[in-house]
């Protein structure tokens, strides 16, 4: 079971900030993030592109479920 983070309803910078915090805690692996806003999704996609991480996007009960496979961050 992957770790899951719910960033729905949060305003900037919480969505990306909490996601990064969670990733730092986990080190590497797969994180599932529940997203509801366009901005948060755009920002997560950019985070993944910048770090060459893979991002999978699916719909689950009217919520976007984003699955990120990540390793250590590229500075």
């Amino acid at each position: 079971m992957n770790e899951r983070l719910d960033i729905r309803g949060l305003s900037c910078p919480q969505p990306v900030f909490l996601t990064k915090q969670k990733m730092e805690k986990l080190g590497k692996g797969t994180l599932e993030v529940l997203v509801d806003k366009g901005t948060a999704l755009t920002n997560l996609k950019r985070l993944c592109t910048d770090n060459n991480w893979t991002l999978e996007e699916t719909m689950e009960d009217n919520t976007i479920l984003v699955k990120i496979s990540f390793s250590e961050e590229h500075e």
Partner: peptide, 18 residues
């Protein structure tokens, strides 16, 4: 999502300069 505060905030907080 242009934001003049986000620009400074993200640079300081998460080192994102977008």
């Amino acid at each position: 999502r242009f934001c003049t505060i986000g620009g400074i905030r993200d640079a300081i907080l998460i080192k994102d300069y977008h």
